[in-house]
Amino acid sequence: MSDSTASATATMPRHLLSIADLDADLIRTLLDTATQMQDVQRREVKKIPTLRGRTVINLFFEDSTRTRSSFEIAGKWMSADTINITGKGSSTSKGESLRDTVMTIDAMGVDALVMRHSASGAAHQVAGWVDAHVINAGDGTHEHPTQALLDAYTMEQRIGGLAGKHVVIVGDLTHSRVFRSNVLSLRMLGADVTVVAPVTLMPSGIRAWSETDGFALSNDLDPILTGDRGVDALMMLRVQKERMSGGYFPTAREYTVGYGLTRPRLQRLVADHPDVVICHPGPMNRGLEISADAADAAQSLILDQVAAGVAVRMSVLYHLLAGAEGGAA
């Protein structure tokens, strides 16, 4: 553990609220540590004492299965006491204020709050109120930084360093915190990024944003997949069917024809780029944004992403809570 932490040039932030809290060196440190954590994951006895005596609260105001259990396992394997608190009712002025809720938990003397909330910015606000370290496990449509870290980790495991690689992100960008975190981390790591969606599923002002942050936009998927630039990784985002009622796209069929990773599209892609990898943050809508063939293809990293999630979250907990105080293994 000491090797990777010693190589860090910048200091790890107190909280992980956004990928913007990090830089390329810090991401590298986190991913290197995740590699070592994955060794723990492969052991018969999956337990290290690193966070013994530390308390990690998973405070989930919004439903989640994979992220919550991933953080819970990460904490438990590192011997932290992990407690899950789930609750809705986060969203009205009539109930307890968010500040009162988190201050109550913080007052118990916890070390880390892993927090998911349906409102963008909630983790930022909470970090200003509590003494505990705050890890953003997804805030509304804003960010999901550990997802972006595990995506980078998983892609690198298969295709090597991301510098100069072309990553294409397709789907509901407007409502995607995965997109917002990934576009930051991928650019930090030197990848070329193209995001693809119908205009109605692109965030407002994305034109100016893309010019500032240096990523490409397209409303048309096929020219990107068949283009001269090639494709090294394809990241399919979940599209909620309910978006149709908001007028974001006409029908599920039309969306799939235009933007889904259908079987014919997959076959053409793999024929052109045999080494391409396919990611999806889950949960998938098989048949809508991704076909069963694509989800289960040899190029699919979807289950690797889930496995990497635990190792990456162990790394984040380690660096935020244990810091340079001691070794992990």
Binding site: S90, S91, T92, S93, S97, L98, R99, D100, H117, S118, A119, S120, G121, A122, Q125, G140
Partner: peptide
């Protein structure tokens, strides 16, 4: 206490 919510809820 009506302002100390998440931004969208305040």
């Amino acid at each position: 206490h009506d302002k100390e919510h998440a931004f969208e809820d305040a």
